[in-house]
């Protein structure tokens, strides 16, 4: 019951209204980044933002729904990857609860932990659903590792460990920069303002 109550506390009206905006931030920034042809995705800034100020459960929900919306609007290929987004929000949320969202160098640690979670969760999806190869450029690294005699799971996992950290650290730092730009009065309306104030 304690758990259910703490989850309910995280979903106040501000959270409910914030989640759609966060999903829209994910989608639109993801599109801007693709337009600028940057070598990262940055499609979970909104998820990390919600996770930091509304808690891990709201973060997990934001991530999951982001993928579903991306699947509904842009590309149904995104649908099976929702567990990755779920864990990005969830891990970022717990990191923030543990105080890892207060200074920029702690945020880098959050980014690394989020990247580890994302890499671990996406590996089985990539291996069992797509046979290890997706349409992204990083699949060339996977193919290279396969050719040097690694087995499929090791190859995919090590590719993900190479690729994810840069993207996730940048994502967390940008979310941190956004939070620093918001007023204390505004942040206090969210369920977990103590996560980010000193």
């Amino acid at each position: 019951m304690k758990l259910i109550n703490s989850i309910k506390r995280d979903f106040n009206t501000m959270t409910l209204v914030m989640i759609p905006v966060a999903i829209a931030i994910n989608v639109v920034i993801g599109q801007i980044v693709a337009l600028l042809k940057l070598p990262v995705y940055l499609d979970s800034i909104g998820t990390v933002l919600v996770a930091a100020i509304c808690g891990p459960w709201a973060g997990a929900l934001t991530g999951t729904l982001s993928n579903i919306i991306w699947g509904l609007l842009v590309d149904p290929n995104a649908l099976p990857w929702f567990p990755v987004a779920l864990f990005i929000g969830f891990v970022a949320g717990w990191c923030a609860v543990a105080g890892l969202f207060r200074t920029w160098w702690k945020v880098i640690i959050t980014g690394i932990l989020v990247a580890l979670a994302a890499a671990t969760v996406s590996t089985p999806i990539q291996v069992y659903l797509y046979g290890g190869i997706t349409a992204s450029g990083s699949s060339f690294i996977t193919a290279f590792l396969l050719q040097t005699g690694r087995d499929l799971i090791t190859a995919v996992l090590s590719t993900n460990f190479l690729v994810e950290p840069i993207d996730k650290i940048a994502t967390c730092l940008l979310a941190f920069a956004i939070i620093k730009g918001l007023s204390t009065r505004y942040l206090a309306r969210f369920p977990r303002p103590e996560n980010i104030t000193m």
Binding site: L16, I19, P20, I23, A24, V28, L61, I69, L72, L73
Partner: peptide
């Protein structure tokens, strides 16, 4: 959440 996201995205 889902229906209002669908309205916010085109605005954004």
């Amino acid at each position: 959440i889902i229906t209002s996201t669908l309205q916010i995205i085109p605005q954004m």
